[in-house]
Simulated scan of single mutants.
Amino acid sequence: MSKPRQTSRRTWVAAWAVLCVVGLVGTAGLKASSAPDPQPNKHVSAECRDLIADIKTQLDKARPEAGNDGILAFSRQQHSAEDCSNELRDFFRNDR
């Protein structure tokens, strides 16, 4: 009966390294292919656009003086005014 051929330690390490690289490349490919689609642009009313533009102007004026410590903004609320809280939240998330 013949002896089974013994595989060297280097061969095992090389095979293990190749399998790891193949796994990492496969994982990266799957993550890239399952990236979420960007959100479609929502319609923002003229009133909210004006409010956001006003806040942006105030932020641009305040940043050189105050640094980047944080700013609190309140939306205007009138009986007939539209609620712009979601648009303001999106604006401040994108501003970071």
Rank of each mutant, 00 (worst) to 15 (best):
Met1Cys: 09
Ser2Met: 07
Ser2Asp: 15
Pro4Asp: 14
Arg5Cys: 06
Arg5Tyr: 02
Gln6Ser: 13
Thr7Ala: 06
Ser8Tyr: 01
Arg9Gln: 13
Thr11Leu: 03
Trp12Lys: 15
Gly23Ser: 05
Leu24Phe: 04
Val25Trp: 02
Gly26Lys: 02
Thr27Lys: 01
Thr27Asn: 06
Gly29Trp: 05
Gly29Arg: 08
Leu30Arg: 11
Lys31His: 07
Lys31Tyr: 13
Ala32Arg: 12
Ala32Trp: 07
Ala35Asn: 05
Pro36Trp: 00
Asp37Gln: 07
Asp37Arg: 10
Pro38Arg: 05
Pro40Val: 07
His43Gly: 09
Val44Met: 00
Val44Glu: 02
Val44Arg: 00
Ser45Met: 03
Ala46Leu: 13
Glu47Asp: 15
Ile52Gln: 02
Ala53Gln: 13
Ala53Gly: 13
Ala53Glu: 12
Ala53Ser: 10
Ala53Pro: 04
Asp54Ile: 07
Asp54Thr: 13
Ile55Pro: 01
Ile55Gly: 00
Lys56Asn: 15
Lys56Tyr: 04
Gln58Ile: 08
Gln58Arg: 12
Gln58Pro: 06
Lys61Gly: 01
Lys61Pro: 06
Arg63Phe: 04
Arg63Tyr: 05
Arg63Ile: 13
Glu65Phe: 04
Gly67Ala: 08
Asn68Gly: 11
Leu72Lys: 07
Leu72Thr: 12
Ala73Arg: 09
Ala73Asp: 05
Ala73Val: 15
Phe74Val: 09
Ser75Lys: 03
Ser75Arg: 09
Arg76Asp: 15
Gln77Gly: 08
His79Trp: 14
Ala81Leu: 05
Ala81His: 08
Cys84Ala: 04
Ser85Pro: 05
Ser85Glu: 11
Asn86Val: 14
Arg89Asp: 10
Asp90His: 00
Asp90Leu: 04
Phe91Gln: 05
Phe92Lys: 10
Asn94Ser: 11
Asn94His: 03
Arg96Met: 10
Arg96Cys: 07
